[in-house]
């Protein structure tokens, strides 16, 4: 770089001879040699005309799509929005499940149990007939109706304690496992039953309120069997099978007799422990003689 290049332009403009004769750095000299625009306060900048954006062709739908593409959210926004909506959805589904458990299962089970009980009574009124052996009932078949007047409970009893076949239909299950428990009409033995404490008709919801002297009535095809509650075990292990043995362990019964055992879960809404209620038979009344006193109060 030479010193001529750094000279102020006026000097270069004035020395035209140098420009013509020298010719050492033509490009640089030419730039330097350009005349400056006159400084004038009266001039104003011209407005620049922006280039018109290319509008998408193809009508309104195409333009709308293009506009949407232009304001599309970033990946982070989309992902976090999706996650949030997913959480909200999971919460709503959980609430729906609670509603299903606490309300809808009861609606369905009450309907089914009511239907089962009334069809049993229709059959009994039509046929009468003798009670059959315990083995004569197939799992899920209703054969009796249990009444607990104090709790205003009326529910059909079916063979077996399978959830799907019996308990979830609002019925009370008669134990056929781990061993076949006795029937009310047997000369002696323990008539062991299981029922839901919550949901699915919850026939045994309030059995914890039963105390000594309260009546439980079992109606079958031939008779009404009235039991009296003797004792209650508020909490025991789910593995405690002894409570439904012919002479229940822990019930206070000394020898063989005609007993009834109700089992359900406790505390409410859990399956941690079992609640047991025991009773003994105090009355057997043929259907021909009408309802027992316990049902007439």
């Amino acid at each position: 770089m030479t010193t001529e290049d750094l000279r102020p332009p006026q000097v270069a403009y004035g020395s035209g001879a140098f420009y013509v004769s020298g010719g050492t750095a033509p490009s640089a000299s030419r730039v330097v040699a350009q005349p400056l625009p006159p400084e004038d306060d009266a001039t104003m900048r011209l407005r620049r005309i922006e280039a018109v954006p290319v509008r998408p062709s193809g009508g309104r739908a195409e333009r709308r799509r293009a506009a949407r593409r232009a304001r599309r959210d970033g990946l982070g926004v989309v992902l976090s929005r999706f996650t949030g909506e997913l959480f909200i959805t999971v919460g709503v589904v959980m609430l729906l499940f609670v509603a299903y458990q606490l309300w809808w299962t009861n609606v369905i089970a009450h309907r089914q149990a009511h239907g089962a009980a009334s069809s049993l009574q229709h059959a009994w009124d039509a046929g009468g007939g003798k009670d059959r052996d315990a083995g004569a009932f197939s799992p899920g078949q209703g054969f009796a109706i249990i009444y607990i007047p104090k709790l205003d409970v009326k529910a059909p009893i079916a063979e077996g304690t399978g959830k799907h076949q019996v308990l979830d239909k609002g019925m009370v299950g008669h134990y056929s496992r781990p061993f076949k428990s006795a029937m009310p009409w047997d000369k002696q033995g323990n008539f062991a039953l299981a029922g839901h404490r919550n949901t699915h008709g919850e026939p045994f919801r309030y059995v914890n309120r039963l105390g000594p002297g309260d009546k439980i009535v079992v109606e079958t095809g031939s008779a009404f069997y009235t039991y009296e509650v003797t004792s209650r075990l508020d909490q025991t292990s789910p593995a405690n099978v002894g409570v439904i043995q012919p002479v229940p362990v822990g019930s206070g019964f000394a020898g063989p007799g005609r007993y009834i055992t109700l089992t359900t879960c406790t505390p409410e809404f859990t399956s941690t422990y079992r609640l047991i209620v025991w009773g003994k038979m105090v009355d057997e009344r043929p259907r021909s003689k009408g309802k027992p006193d316990a049902l007439l109060e």
Partner: peptide, 25 residues
């Protein structure tokens, strides 16, 4: 959900065992 999903999911959750045969039923 009410007709198919919840009845399917219910036995998988430990809420409603009422028997003393330790869940065999």
């Amino acid at each position: 959900l009410f007709q198919y999903v919840f009845p399917w999911a219910e036995p998988l959750l430990p809420f409603n065992d009422v028997t003393v045969d330790n869940g065999m039923a």
